[in-house]
Amino acid sequence: MSDTPKIRLRGVTKRFGDKLVLDGIDLDVAPQTSMVVIGGSGSGKSVLLKCILGLIAPDSGTIEIDGQDVLRMPHKARDAARARIGMLFQNGALFDSISVAENVAFGLLAQKKATRAEARIRAEEVLAQVGLAASVGDLAPAELSGGMQKRVALARAIAASPDILFFDEPTTGLDPIMGAVIDGLITEQVKRMGSTAIAITHDMASARRIGDRAAMIHKGRIVWEGPAESLMDSGNPMVDQFTHGRRDGPIQMELRR
C-alpha cells in the first residue's frame, strides 16, 4: 500500500439552502481497497459521492484523487480524472431509449476508446462477466428484471475499466440471494481490475461482504471509521445502534409525534 491515498477528502462542506448536508467530511481511501459508507437516509452519503464525481460542487474543502486536487484542476484534466471513475447508480439509471448493449458500450464510445463494432464485442464480454448472455444485449432496459438491470448497470460502470468505482446502494430493492450475487460480482470485478471502491449501503450483510474498511456518516460528519468486519461489534454506540437497527440510542430519529 503506497502512502498517498487514492481518494482524500478534507473538510468537504455542502449546504443546500439552510440545510447543512456535508459538515466537513475528512475521508481517506487507500489504493485498491473498498470503503463502505453507512448512515441513515438523508445523512449526505449520496451527495458525498456526487461531490467526488463533480456532479455537485462542494462549498468548501478539497477533494484529491491520486494526490491531485480535482476541484482546482483545469477543465480538461478534471474531465480526464473523472473519466476514470465508474458509477453504479441506485436505481441503475440505464438509458431507456437505447439497447442494453449500447448502454454498456456508452462510456467506451464517448471516450473514443473503441469503434462501434469493437464496443459491441466489448459489451458482450462485460455482460458475460456479470453473468448475462450476449442475447440480453439486444433487449431494452425496461424488458429486464430489477436484478438484471442492476447487473447491466454494473457492466456499464466497469466497461471502461475505471480505476475507481462508486456503488450507490447496490443491493437495495433486490432479494437477499440476488443481493449476494451482486455483491459477489462487485468484489470479483473490483479485485480483478485492482480498482479502488466506495460503496454506500444500508445492508449490513452487503457492507461486510464488499468492504475492507467502513465509515459511518451522521448529520454530514464522519462519526466512525474502522475495519468493515468490526461493523457489528465496533464499540461505537452510534454504529451499534445503526447496524443492529435499534430504535433507542444516541441517534434520535427526527419524528414528530
Binding site: 473523472r82 465508474g86 458509477m87 447508480f89 441506485q90 440505464l94 464517448a110
Partner: peptide, 20 residues
C-alpha cells in the same frame, strides 16, 4: 417528459459520469 424522467431517474447524471 422524456428529459424530465431522465433527470429524476439519474440518467442525466449517468451521462456525465460516462464522459458525455
Amino acid at each position: 417528459a422524456e428529459i424530465g424522467t431522465m433527470r429524476v431517474t439519474d440518467q442525466i447524471d449517468a451521462l456525465t459520469t460516462l464522459s458525455t
